[in-house]
Amino acid sequence: MDITVILDYLIRGLSLGSVYAIIALGYTMVYGIAKMLNFAHGDVIMVGGYICFFSMSGLSSHFEEGSVAAMVVPAVAGTLAAMVVCTVLGVTIERLAYKPLRQASSLAVLITAIGVSYFLQNAALLLWSANPKVFTPVVGRGSLQVGPLSISYVTLLTIAVCIVIMIALTTFTSRGKMGKAMRAVSEDKGAAQLMGINVNATISLTFAIGSALAGIAGVLFMSAYPTLTPTTGSMPGIKAFTAAVFGGIGSIPGALLGGLLLGIIEIFAGAYISTQLQNAIVFAVLIVVLVVRPAGLLGKTIREKV
């Protein structure tokens, strides 16, 4: 096996894994706070993809082709638009669909989340039709040559964005007042209320952050896999959910580790074993990990002191 080829696969795996990690953060933060699996999260990614697509194609005609502005402005505006729309969408979904079920059984919430997922897919079908749109990557199609390795700009951007998001989120939850309040709410809602923390506002904030990240993930994922349809979000959504469970659901570093490992396993399985069995292998690894460590790689099982 050639080391350059292996390195190439590794970088591609890291890039795909970075997208999974960014999506997995949304799953894991929402699970940590609201103790629910938001299966509509993947479809928020799809909406982010469409919003970015339409913003970019709408804006690009206003700029001279090939100019710097034509490269930068539509991409940045499209990404921001995707983030804003996804944030509003995520918070609205929480308010309308999940908040009334705060006291309901987790099964009712789960079924609702699946319902919201289908609702978003069908709304997208109605609005934007089933015809695939071809997404233009937010950075040029070029690549960076490092010795024998050629790394595409999209790959580099994805990994860089993932690192920035991780640093920002870790700082926010370990230093910020709101971030600490989030951790308090995720541990004990009742006690957090007794501290004067507004639990509903904290849950909304979590959905807002998770959904903004879904917007970014949508843009990055579509830049790497440019075919955009109303069901585009479901596969990365379910993989990222797997990544979150793999790493230990509820844990932010777990989402990063799970996402990266999943991306790497997926790329290597496709390269060396079989592209058809790629997804099966990914999920088989999840099963093995859960048998050995039911809480996931970084998941904690906490014993209470009495």
């Binding site: 007042k177 308090a184 541990e187 501290m195 507004n198 209470e304």
Partner: peptide
């Protein structure tokens, strides 16, 4: 959360401190 601000605090049964946070972070909360 508004009642706490009015000057009425409760130390709940079973303490319910935030076990995964540090002592100082608990106090900050």
């Amino acid at each position: 959360h508004r009642i706490v601000g009015k000057g009425l605090a409760q130390v709940p049964e079973g303490r319910r401190i935030f076990l995964q946070m540090t002592v100082e972070e608990n106090l900050e909360m």
